[in-house]
Design a protein around this nucleic acid. Structure first.
Ligand SMILES: [Zn+2]
Ligand SMILES: [Zn+2]
Ligand SMILES: [Zn+2]
Ligand SMILES: [Zn+2]
Lengths: 154, 154
DNA sequence: CAATGCAATGTTATGTTGTAACTTGTCCTC
DNA sequence: GAGGACAAGTTACAACATAACATTGCATTG
């Protein structure tokens, strides 16, 4: 269970929370951004920028270049609407965009599913260790590659 | 300081330790593998497969394809002679190939330097959290992006 | 209402990272 | 010297990411 309380959103509610958050940052919630967010949230596993480009292209019946997707994903990550999964070169929608903290991702090497867990004790420990080594403006990347319970039902 | 004791190697001693380790695994220590290891160990920061291909090409005065480098790097990572830094798409030589454990990398966004720290309490905690979530055969990826003390001397 | 400025997006090109498939070379064994 | 096993070479391409510049649409203002 999470170490702290926060609201997890899904579907319509998630999009609303994302829109709220982005506009509150002084950024616009455009049709294109909504389309990208919907596509991203529609995936059940981390999606690459090209996956998203394909999904948006299909939804809009026109070609959307990966380029534009990257721009919007960068914006989303900066605004905490999405997270980048470094070990998968892929992105996931953030189900609690109002809650600013470090996430831990567990990624299944078999099925590609990613589980998101929160543990401030662990992430705080990693931050502290980096600080102790003289690092500032730290951004922890904590992920675990492995096999999920569904893929290895022992 | 490291939580456990182990020998850190460098230069000739490091290459020896790597050769020892690899051959003990039943793999061959070929000229090509030595060249790749030397090139990798010669970098003062994480090097991409293409960086290494270039270095080896220069050292051997012939073109070596990145392809071959990837094969050898995969072997090295599997044998604990090298580590992949996921958030940098790059590799570093492992200075203690005989010591099997999870490493934490701190990578400076400014200068690219990577510092390697060990903290079994933290990495163990991450492993435990993954296990609790039903994941098996786990391989933690714990890295911190930030600014190193040299680049931000406050 | 033109003219201007600005942010978002489109377009094209190219750079970087990573794999796949097949071939060649080398060494060992029979 | 034929055959097998493994390392490495070669070529081609897939996947991921960014750079540079053009276009669009909308708001401001003279
Ligand atoms: Zn949370
Ligand atoms: Zn799975
Ligand atoms: Zn160690
Ligand atoms: Zn630095």
């Amino acid at each position: 269970m999470p170490v702290h309380d926060h609201q997890l959103h899904e579907g319509e509610s998630l999009r609303e929370a994302a829109r709220e958050r982005l506009t509150r940052q002084g950024e616009q919630w455009t049709g294109m951004r909504e389309a990208v967010f919907d596509a991203l949230a529609g995936f059940d596993k981390p999606a690459s920028a090209y996956d998203i480009a394909e999904a948006v292209s299909k939804a809009q019946e026109r070609r959307v270049a990966a380029n534009s997707i990257y721009r919007i994903l960068d914006l989303f990550v900066g605004a905490n609407l999405a997270r980048r999964v470094e070990s998968a070169n892929a992105y996931v929608a953030n189900t609690h965009p109002d809650c600013l903290h470090d996430c831990i991702f567990l990624i299944c090497d078999q099925c590609g599913q990613a589980v998101h867990i929160d543990n401030d004790r662990l992430t705080g420990g990693v931050r502290d260790a980096a600080k102790e080594a003289g690092f500032t403006q730290t951004r922890p990347v904590i992920e675990v590659r492995g096999t999920c319970g569904d893929c290895d039902p022992n």
